[in-house]
Design a protein around this nucleic acid. Structure first.
Lengths: 339, 339
DNA sequence: GGATGGCACTCTGACCACCCGAGTGCTAAT
DNA sequence: ATTAGCACTCGGGTGGTCAGAGTGCCATCC
């Protein structure tokens, strides 16, 4: 009983099942794929695959269906990349290139990915923490209130109001603004503690309390993870693949409404050598996502990965195609943000 | 044949059908509601209601179901307000009050409304156009590039980058900033054209081109409707009421993904005396929403209505309850934004 | 003239029995 | 190790029957 053929059978089962959504039996398998052995032989292989927990039958006397474990092995060892056509590549690039600002880039990316994969697409906004800073502004709103505006290399703009002691002179503010910009520009949060300390020291002791407060708010804002945002598109595609879910798509929709769930998920996922991460069915902690798989990849801004994008659908998905699409969009997204 | 009783019968049919999701027949109707007449009488009334297009039967020998027109009449003349309990009112207020900024307020509002109505809730961000401005900032990003930050009374912050001629002196920028703030603060877009004109005139001719450009970008940004944003919650509730839709919830999800559709819808809807607008089934232009009803109300900031919130569900919905909830949330939202 | 009781008619949905086909596992032969 | 053959299982489709809920209509009553 050849090990190779067994894996070939698994691959064939996954292919067929993904295409037809029907449990696949031994006869149809030998007919559709050119395995030059008899159905009986395949049955033996299937029995072995079932023992190994890679496939299962929904009920006696039905064909076989891949299990999560089966899909996992398929993804890790059997699926071959399905490169996008040059036309598709051009289309992606052209579409993203027309974006006018960061919001627009993110919006276009997520729609694009949803359309390419026919699934639910999610895009995480560039993390403040991991982004390099471009500019920082302090705007007086009242005598005792400042607005801090932070602009990152990726184009993200974040603002935060803070209370300050009354009567800080305008020139102090101006100096602080200048020094802060000189020390933060082009740096990321991790490299910021020391330069910011130096900024504080540069001021006379009497003003240090005020400066320290500003610096602390800046650090807090950058470190804060609650500001992580996600956008989503293609939820309607879930309804189309509704038949792939045991009962309803409700638990999935519920999980998707909890942005926290998605954010955790995306950040937990470990990427393989090719830069793509895949979570299959029950590998997801969240119960509502037990029947869904997620394909994710990081994108970069200024050379550094700053956030992730992903595609989510039923475990019965076209993994090869989805992986290609996710990777392609991530790559073009990085390219746009770099330019 | 009394007209009054006929309407009473319609009301009973709507009540029953909303509660049970089953076509309601003459016998069960007299049993459940204390109409002291015989089923045969009700049948006659039903025939009349059907002639008037207010109810219909899914198939011969089934009970009756309200039509869109029937719901419409019910909403306009028959439904009585269902005030929220004081406990609910307090809960709403307390929940919204804890919000830390505008994003948070909007986010909480939409979740709250989804939970109260068990339907899909949408909240439109305060319109820039209709909001009063609080502050305006000009931040130099490069020698030939400015960032304009606009802050509204409602707390919305909007930014826009613009190219400017090289070498505008710092003091010109400072003066422009001061003059702009003096002339826009507390005003809305409609009242802005003339003051802005005066700002332009206040500068020497040589600098007017630059100033004019800044002013034009400001006006554009405020006028632009593409920046209108919507947030949504409770899509999972659609799955629960999936049985209320002819086939799948897909067209509904698709419509919801097109923010433009929702924005148009919300802005088209005309509010009645009580400040609530209702669109029922086919009254919606969009085909995907032909089986859904929408209840919307405006909320205000600084005395002026600035945007809308709404609740969307199957036509077979609890109109009285939904209307109360939408109105309550809109009112508390206005209160929070005023404080 | 509106309300009612009676009656014949219709349609749906549940239940049931049945059978066909696809698929399996096992065993014996190659 | 592969294969052919065979007995077995199970789901799903087909068709028939039946009860129930509901209707429309007509004659009758107040």
């Amino acid at each position: 009983m050849s090990e190779d053929r067994r894996l070939e059978v698994l691959r064939a089962i996954v292919d067929d099942y993904v295409r037809t959504r029907e449990p696949v039996g031994s006869r149809t398998l030998v007919e559709r794929h050119r395995l030059n052995v008899s159905p009986a032989t395949i049955r033996n292989d299937m029995a072995a695959l079932e023992d190994a927990g890679l496939i299962a039958q929904p009920h006696t006397s039905a064909g076989r269906v891949p299990t999560d474990k089966g899909y996992r092995l398929f993804v890790d060892r059997l699926s071959q990349v399905k490169p996008l056509s040059p036309a598709e590549q051009r289309a992606i690039h052209a579409f993203l290139e027309d974006a006018v600002d960061l919001d627009d880039v993110v919006d276009r990316s997520v729609r694009l990915l949803a359309q390419l994969t026919h699934q639910v697409a999610v895009v995480q906004y560039p993390s403040l923490r991991r982004s390099a800073l471009r500019h920082l502004e302090l705007v007086p709103m009242a005598t005792d209130r400042l607005l801090m505006v932070i602009i990152t290399e990726a184009g993200r703009v974040e603002q935060r109001a803070l209370d300050v002691p009354e009567g800080v002179p305008e020139h102090t503010l101006g100096e602080l603004r200048a020094r802060l910009n000189a020390s933060v520009a082009g740096r990321r949060l991790a490299d910021l503690t020391e330069p910011l300390d130096q900024v504080v020291q540069a001021f006379p002791v009497a003003e240090q309390e005020f400066v320290r407060r500003v610096v602390r708010v800046l650090e807090e804002t950058l470190a804060e993870t609650t500001e992580e945002r996600i956008v989503m598109a293609g939820t309607a595609n879930l309804a189309r693949s509704g038949l792939d879910f045991a009962h309803t798509i409700r638990p999935v929709l519920e999980a998707l409404e909890e942005q926290v769930v998605l954010l955790n998920l995306l950040s937990e996922m470990a990427e393989d050598a090719a830069g793509v991460a895949v979570r299959i069915g029950h590998e997801n902690e969240h119960a509502g996502l037990a029947e869904t798989s997620i394909v994710a990849a990081s994108y970069a801004s200024g050379g550094q990965p700053v956030a992730r994008i992903g595609s989510l659908g039923p475990t019965r998905m076209d993994y090869a195609g989805t992986i290609s699409s996710v990777r392609a969009v991530a790559r073009y997204l990085s390219r746009i943000l770099a330019g």
